[in-house]
Amino acid sequence: MTRISPGLLFALPALIVLTMLVAYPIMYTALLSVTDQQGNLVGLQNFQRVMQARTTPVAFYNTLVWVGGSVVLQVVLGTATAILLNEKFAGRAIVRSIAVIPWVIPGIVGALTWAWMFHTEFGIINYMLTAPGIVDEPVGWLVSRNTVMPAMIAINVWKLFPFVAIMVLAGLQAIPKDLYEAARVDGAGFWDEVWHVTLPQVRPVIVAVTLLLVIWALNHITTIFAITRGGPANSTLITPIQIFRLAFESVQFHQAAALSVMFFAATMVIVAVYIKVLSAKEEKSL
């Protein structure tokens, strides 16, 4: 038995707290997924039933679109905002504080406010478009397959791009000023600086933020559930909502657990690959 590395020792309290919290839920879910309501072992029956459902592949595909669309836009817009908020201009402190507001607004309230703003008849968005004649007919944002998922993604981007912005902004604070000075001596313009100095320096922050965003998007419920509940005709049904419906609407805890196990395994693989690839790249230790 070798002595514990000081690095692990530092991490130990966090690992212990989390183990305490998730150990039982993981065992419980795993057990539920292979049993029936009477507690009998049923092998893979729950898994089979979940896989047979017409909605499962639909939800899987929607989840990919949802996660991909949300995360890419959040990272790009958030990083751009961070660079903007790092520039010097009058009122910067106020703008920075305003930028946290979408995140502070309670999720359900934000979602419902957007739902009403997107409403075909009541919505302020259609009103602003139709009143000056930009469009002739009100747009059915949340009632058509083509617009409903983009609308959901837009709301999610609105909610979370400030998170990226503030996190990256904090990272920007740590960039030594002499790096910029050196670049400027070499005759670099603003965009050269962004590309060759700023972005490489905050790369670790963006990498971590992206990982968190992927996980949050993968496990998202509030916005979609509050607005469309996965509809219309399942066009916004993502897997976590399918699990939620199975467990708490259909009272099929065992099938919900089976789907959770599959979902958990898939996300775990994504995360492990992501971390493995990155840690290989940026190991910089003492």
Binding site: A115, T120, E121, F122, G140, L142, V143, T228, P232
Partner: peptide, 19 residues
């Protein structure tokens, strides 16, 4: 029935009725 039918529940319909 209004164009927004697919996003309306009973509460939304009541609001449309009130409006």
């Amino acid at each position: 029935s209004p164009a927004s039918t697919l996003q309306n529940d009973g509460t939304a319909n009541r609001r449309l009725f009130i409006a």
